[in-house]
Design a protein around this nucleic acid. Sequence first.
DNA 1: TATTATT
Length: 308
Amino acid sequence: AWEPGGLPQGEAKSLWGLESDCEGPESIRDTRGGDQTTALPFSPCPSAALSQVSYARPSSASIRDANLYVSGLPKSMSQKEMEQLFSQYGRIITSRILVDQVTGVSRGVGFIRFDKRIEAEEAIKGLNGQKPLGAAEPITVKFANNPSQKTGQALLTQLYQSSARRYAGPLHHQTQRFRLDNLLNMAYGVKSPLSLIARFSPIAIDGMSGLAGVGLSGGAAGAGWCIFVYNLSPEADESVLWQLFGPFGAVTNVKVIRDFTTNKCKGFGFVTMTNYDEAAMAIASLNGYRLGERVLQVSFKTSKQHKA
DNA sequence: TATTATT
């Protein structure tokens, strides 16, 4: 029987075929448009506009591992455009583009599930490393990782980190009360020392031309200067980035890049800062900074592909 | 692990 919030767990498992290559509710989407899909006249989930129930696709070797992970997509590319790009290689069962939860803008990352594994293989051959029609950067196309293949330890670590992050951001934002310009103002009576830096910045000299290829990210809400931080320890987490960069000004986002399977930091991360002057000051101050046993390398993010 | 992103 239907209950608010969905099917009883045991029935959902057998109905959706969680043991197969499909994962839970995705399987419902998998057969959207198929001839055995039934739309319900009501919604078992209060937030859902429409629910659909259908037979799961039979599990077989030919459709297993047909799910692709795509990164480096142009932020402007829609899900439909991504499907058009991949549809030349086979029948697409489902697709998704991940978006920023706050701004709604594309994160440049998506998924494509083909009907057949062979189609996915051909799509990798044909599209991995290719630039989609007039895009500045090539995309990466590979088989998607399956969350269920994560180790229990990695899952625990991620659970811990996701709950710790909820506090790390706002907490360390408070350090911005001690912004560098305010500190210097108090210490030296300088009205706005950062404006002195601005006078000698590439912006002041020749506008934006000196900054081609560095990390000014576009988009109205997501705008900011992206900073690359290298030589983080395998145990580094987001809080260290907040602590390091927060005192220099407005930090809107930090990210430690981890191995998806082990959850260990790959040695680098990214920080987005709103203002060029503050980002430049943070880079000048933190590049070469010794964090524990490690010496950090900090710079504006560049496009690896275009580097000379 | 040297310029992200894993539904």
